[in-house]
Design a protein around this nucleic acid. Structure first.
Lengths: 297, 297
DNA sequence: TAGTATCGATAAGTTTTTCTAAAGCGATGC
DNA sequence: GCATCGCTTTAGAAAAACTTATCGATACTA
């Protein structure tokens, strides 16, 4: 049996482009430049001797036949992905030791660890709770979850989740105001910011269609958790990543004041020690975390 | 939706190796060297952090989990292949003009052309029957089926089928002998060979476990078709490729004398004009032909 | 039992593929 | 009228894949 297949990399690029109806978004999904997608689609079109996309103004549309192909490829690639995931789950065994701050441990990891164990029965996660990142070798760590700027998430720093924030506060502060509130209303409240990250408030107001005036009442806090506590106590409005405060939103101790959200240039990452070999179990853990976060809220 | 997939090329190599339980055969199927397969499996094993194969003496065996993965991948890749084939069939339109000798046209192409049209409704094949290959441009040809040595089937010469021959003759010659016959019995008959290709008879006898003696009765013919006609007339035994004489075998005008078959270093190829662009319709035609031939007989 | 062939692993070097950066194009929106 | 957006193209750089050659282990063969 000799099966003739087109270049699978090209097919994958095509499937992503077809799903998004955008080369740019496909490029983003596959972590390459948009030009790369353009190349691959072109090569596939030459292979088949037929157009896959109609090129329109600033967008692409699938040809009739290509739409069928894309749908079938999507199914097949899903099958490949799930088969690989099942295999991975089977062969992952042992324990990985990961350092994480209590803030994230409580809000992100611990509530979902059961779920992870169900997905990877042979793999246990040993969490070290600490406020600062210690030396990997010294503490016998396999990885660490660290929050910060997302400038160069490379081989040793996998992005798990970029903060996507909206203004939140205690219901006590806004007693009775209708939700959502306008940016103008929100600007009347005291605003809680992390020291040195005041710009996120300006960015949020800009996204909401308003300029933040210089004479707003803004408090500055050393840590994000402190700004959030300040808001929780009903003293101010803070910007918060909604998945992280889902419990507070659910039990009503915090409310979200606006639909407008902005994505920050900082978030949570999984850092692994430098070296030639990367433990696939960490990749699996990171992938799992990244995948699940998008489902929370 | 961001789907995490292992390198698809590696998965394909793994699937082939798992199917054959042999790196070497997988390499052969994928037209690469055995070393390449070894590299790819190794990379995949590192990606997963787990063994896919047990390495035994001169053979490999799948691990338990890898066997499941392989089965699932086989299905998924089949889906990709059939989806691609369907797309191809849809977009292939127009006419391709192919030169072929009457011998092959009658025995290989014409009886199956209907079938091809069913598979590629938009594509017609225009056959030019001729004994010699003319200049592509002069006769406005897109390709030519040519029989010959298979030394370097490269970009411009796609192998369709290597002759796999066994001794055949008219029932008249062997009147009443039981089949299959032993090599010794066969050596008693006059043997028909193509001039300059007598070695194939030696090769066949060697494969059948006997040395061909120098004093056998061997006739030499200028063309393969003539040697075959000679056998058909009951004058000698000839070596023939079974798929090519399926009609004669079916209607009893020829019988095969032995189970032993050997593969020659010559066969039928699809030649295309040199140049940077290869017409995908010719590739499709060649692939189809190659695929179907293995099913005839 | 020596000799030979087979199969997979590995090392080193080369080829091919893939990707990026940058410039371009045509259309769109403010 | 200028900035922007999304795809294309070109040229060159980077990465991946492949080949050749060789090795080691083992099985077949004479």
């Amino acid at each position: 049996m000799t099966r003739r297949l087109p270049n699978l990399k090209h097919l994958r690029a095509f499937e992503a482009a077809a799903r998004h109806l955008s080369f740019k978004q496909a490029a983003n999904e596959l972590s390459v430049t948009q030009a790369a997608i353009s190349h691959q689609i072109k090569a596939l079109e030459e292979h088949f001797g037929a157009r896959l996309f109609h090129r329109l103004n600033r967008q692409v549309a699938l040809t009739e036949e290509a739409a069928v192909l894309a749908a079938e490829l999507e199914l097949a690639l899903d099958q490949v992905a799930s088969a690989s995931a099942r295999f991975r789950a089977q062969v992952m065994t042992g324990t990985i030791r990961i350092s994480v701050t209590p803030f994230y441990a409580n809000r992100m990891i611990l509530p979902h660890l059961e779920e992870f164990h169900a997905a990877f029965p042979g793999l246990s996660v040993d969490l070290e709770l600490s406020y600062e990142i210690a030396d990997f070798a010294e503490r016998d760590l396999d990885g660490a979850l660290r929050y910060g700027l997302s400038d160069r998430p490379g081989a040793y720093m996998q992005l798990i989740h970029l903060d996507r924030v909206a203004p939140v506060t205690s219901p006590a502060l806004i007693h009775g105001n209708d939700l959502p509130m306008t940016p103008a209303q929100i600007a009347e409240f005291p605003l809680a910011a992390v020291a040195g990250q005041e710009r996120y408030w300006s960015q949020w107001f800009k996204a909401a269609g308003r300029t933040l005036s210089d004479d707003c009442k803004m408090s500055r806090h050393d840590q994000r958790a402190l700004a959030l506590d300040f808001a929780l106590a009903g003293n101010a409005v803070a910007l918060a990543d909604l998945p992280l405060i889902r419990n507070e939103l659910a039990n009503g101790s915090l409310v979200c004041l606006s639909e407008t959200q902005i994505t920050l240039d900082r978030g949570i990452h999984l850092a692994v020690p430098e070296g030639p070999f990367r433990d696939p179990r960490l990749t699996a853990f990171g992938d799992w975390l990244r995948g699940r976060i998008s489902e929370w809220i």
